[in-house]
Design a protein around this nucleic acid. Sequence first.
DNA 1: CGGCACTTTGAGAGTGTTCAAGGAAGGTGG
DNA 2: CCACCTTCCTTGAACACTCTCAAAGTGCCG
Lengths: 241, 241
Amino acid sequence: MQMENTAAALAIADQSAEAIVRRHIAVGIEIQNLCFVNERYQRSLPVAMSTFTLSGDKEIYGKGEEAVLFFKLVLGMVRTCTFLKNGRRQIDAFYLPGNVFGLEVGAEHNLTAETVCRSRVISYRRRDLEVLATNSERFSAVAFSFAMQSLARAQEHAVLLGCRSAVEKLATFLTDLAAYSPKSEMLSLEMSRRDIADYLGLTIETVSRAFGHLVDKSLIDLSTARQIRLKDPEGLRLLTS
Amino acid sequence: MQMENTAAALAIADQSAEAIVRRHIAVGIEIQNLCFVNERYQRSLPVAMSTFTLSGDKEIYGKGEEAVLFFKLVLGMVRTCTFLKNGRRQIDAFYLPGNVFGLEVGAEHNLTAETVCRSRVISYRRRDLEVLATNSERFSAVAFSFAMQSLARAQEHAVLLGCRSAVEKLATFLTDLAAYSPKSEMLSLEMSRRDIADYLGLTIETVSRAFGHLVDKSLIDLSTARQIRLKDPEGLRLLTS
DNA sequence: CGGCACTTTGAGAGTGTTCAAGGAAGGTGG
DNA sequence: CCACCTTCCTTGAACACTCTCAAAGTGCCG
């Protein structure tokens, strides 16, 4: 992890991502399930924090590592995942700017966190938050709310994995993404087909064919593999079932 | 919901279930992820509570209902699930005696809770817990811990649904159950094949065939469809991967 | 322009689902 | 206590969907 505290680091980030950040930080706690350490709280946070930038596909922490820090994403995208003995990988969630991740209740992280693309992250000391929570009912309520909303998200994911076909899974994934996108018709995917496959419990080939299927039904357009235009968001939502 | 406050109601419950309860309540918060309102805390809980018994397949609350109460299971088994428009059902979790369920952060329940078999349940007022949590850092920490452990459970479930074959899913399900069973070699399943199928994201036929497969490999024995003996727990665990 | 990683496409195999029928278990009434 | 009925579970065969393996196409970067 290369540590950077200069303003130059921020300049590296591309502008569209910046726009997303501004939007999320501004709206703060209301819009982002996973964002509870927002600008307002941050000022009163007595935690020693550092900010750093990572390129893509870099591990932030590994499953089983001691959970001393937790993180907030500023720019880019992060995934949390589990690796199985049979070589498979299950991605649990993708995090967008403003989201908090890596906060645990046990001694260890129970997932691995990696950057999807070049990302900027703030780290916080977990102990500092715990102290804060015991002194402030507001913070403890927010922490509880954070955990419960993460829970709801994980439960939705389980429904997605358990009850849907490949095309339905992809349609659900895209509509979910669109809900967090500034221009909801145009999506630019930061993650690879492999990432999507491992999130949806499919193979990359099946994901690719599902994209093809959506294009054939003219629900979406692909200018490149990662630039998607939602031609018929309502039609997509019908597949969400 | 028929309300019962007499000792007679308890006598209805069969003895083996009673034994499970005694074990779980005694060990309390440590052993049961979802048990935080245990005997020790209960005495100091100023919540107005009622206890009632339901027969099997009865709804305790529905998805979208106002979440005024939450519950603790005393005897029997409860499932939480989601119904999709296409008629499918995804079971999110099974709850054992001692487990707490139905505690929400939003205004509404976001799952449906039903009894799997005849069950005895205690209800609590959510507001009372909230008051307690704001006054006691201990309670708020326990609430947070409860939520985070539920989260870890849901994430495990997502891995189960995303990365495993039918036989692996069933093997994982059985070993998980065995971990909570007093005599871990003998399992008596309270839930139907349909319940298991909807929990594992399979059909009942596939579940049945998976059972057959485990019998063929002499990892388990079925005296009846719901009475299982684990002949080779370690062999099962290898399938857990 | 070439090389590399990612994505798409195709064909065949495998796994789980669907549809259908038979069998076992539990509950009820005679 | 037995017969019947209903519900649940199992088994079989054909089918659909996804996976696997293989190869070709695309875009990106040096």
